[in-house]
Write a protein that binds this DNA or RNA. Structure first.
Lengths: 128, 128
DNA sequence: TTACTATTGATAATTGTTTTCATTAATATT
DNA sequence: AATATTAATGAAAACAATTATCAATAGTAA
């Protein structure tokens, strides 16, 4: 948690492990996996998937993380966090959340929005 | 493609393989993986991740699939597709898409929205 | 018909994640 | 304190989805 708070980013288990292990060499990879599982269950951490085969974890917005969404380049995997333009979203999202919640009898805890596309570098040059 | 069109659902590679292989026994698993990769690249198929360790694929809305989003139960993995309430989204999403596109110089091809929560069965009974 | 290239599927290799299990730490009970 | 019991830990093995390899086949060009 301290690492995720300090950096504010989204990281793979391996990355988290390397960092935590540096400060606390006794902590093993399995414990990192287990702890992240619990933190996600508790709602303190969110699991993300950007399609490169490994899960990423970040502080959930409910527990001090910034409320933001992601813009993913399907070419190189580059991820841009954005938190501008969120105001417009909020009302709509909240409405949908309530309607869905009622209609499908779900207790909704979180939402994720991703835009997928190609960054400038990955776009074919005739599309630039 | 024919299978995804006919069913209109989201399936794992294994599920797609089993179905395609039944009709065309000569087609192997590797080819299914390879073909899906190409279809995704072409924008005809979307890859989804519901956090159970395997990717799902569905017809992209651009190529005849219904435009819908997903409501995922983090307890049992149940997925509800919804396409109601999308009208409200559309305008907002379109605005954000344009703004993001301009600001970060991305060519945005697709967006994904997921609501995560607990379905009625998975909710602890004191929360019912 | 022949030479060359691209596609295929079976298998092996890889890799992120989960299980197993003996060890250690923590807690409860004398 | 000393002991018994339970829970947490990490190393290694097992697992599963995906990717790479490669010989065989199909397709195309000469």
């Amino acid at each position: 948690m301290e690492f995720l708070q300090r950096t504010g980013g989204h990281f793979s288990v391996e990355e988290i492990y390397r960092n935590v292990h540096k400060a606390f060499p006794s902590i093993g990879l399995t414990t990192v996996y287990r702890t992240l599982e619990v933190l996600v269950e508790m709602g303190l951490v969110s699991r993300l998937d950007f399609g490169d085969g490994k899960s990423r974890y970040e502080l959930s917005s409910g527990s001090g993380g910034t409320h933001h969404h992601h813009l993913c380049c399907t070419g190189c995997g580059r991820i841009v966090d954005y938190q501008e333009f969120l105001e417009e979203e909020k009302k709509v999202i909240k409405n949908i959340e309530e309607a869905l919640s009622r209609k499908h009898n779900f207790q909704i805890n979180e939402h994720q929005i991703q835009f997928l596309g190609l960054c400038y570098d990955c776009r074919p040059k005739e599309a630039k």
